[in-house]
Design a binder for these strands. Structure first.
Lengths: 134, 134
DNA sequence: CCGTATCCTCCCGGATACTG
DNA sequence: CAGTATCCGGGAGGATACGG
């Protein structure tokens, strides 16, 4: 880690940065996919498990609990046998939709640019490696 | 993992989901903090290391390389001795600023709601634990 | 000053088995 | 159906030392 020399205090701290708090809430891929699965209304537990490719029960439950704890998702239990559990976005969760969708739009609009940049970067990397081995 | 039963294909895949691609680019805390450090213009390597609390050289370099590879950040080397290296956002990187700031604004506006929800959730959790041990 | 290389630890998350 | 409990391997990332 960099040493903080006399009086030169860091001004970007994880604790107070708005961006960090943002990531604290939505930075996991499962969190976002689960959130995404609820964009168009409520869904049952098993249903979500089937719709979200590759998620395990453990992560589905854990992710839903976290979203619930943060007040973004509601859990509704119907105590039949077998039980039925539905999840849906809270008003707070819905308020997050718009900025999230803006960011999704940016990604869709610019992902090809990112891919192109990666190709270009990797290309120069290999040609440099090649030059070294001459 | 949930089994994909006959014909019931999952419709939310990591590979094609816009949100996932978004996280692919900005989901790490260091990535976001480094990006943040460049919001108001270019900065030198060491300067960023001092400003971003807790980051190690390894992660700073790794993060900058990734942002550079994705075409969001530019690296400018001045080959003096000792060398001087400045980093800045590319136009693509700048285009990401707006949606990111929207999300940051949401976080600032609603973080207290999230904290309140957490308190409430944790509160009910402990009172439940308490009830169990009666 | 601006990195890279190496080692080593910790914890995330998958697999599996069990329960109301 | 909707979870919980336990075990465990791999990779992210910190600490440290070295290099141009």
């Amino acid at each position: 880690m960099f040493l903080t020399d006399k009086g030169n205090h860091p001004d970007i701290s994880l604790k107070v940065c708005g961006y960090s708090r943002m990531l604290e809430i939505i930075s996991s891929k499962w969190t976002v996919l689960v959130f995404y699965a609820l964009e168009n209304g409520s869904a049952r537990y098993g249903e979500m498990g089937r719709r979200i490719e590759g998620i395990s029960k453990k992560m589905l439950t854990q992710t839903l609990r976290q979203l619930e704890r943060d007040g973004l998702v509601m859990r509704h239990l119907t105590p039949t046998i077998p039980p039925r559990v539905d999840y849906s976005l809270t008003p707070l969760g819905e308020s997050l939709l718009k900025p999230m969708q803006e960011l999704k739009k940016w990604t869709i609009d610019h992902y090809s640019d990112v891919e192109q940049a990666r190709d270009h970067y990797d290309q120069s990397a290999v040609s440099q490696d090649f030059a070294e081995n001459e």
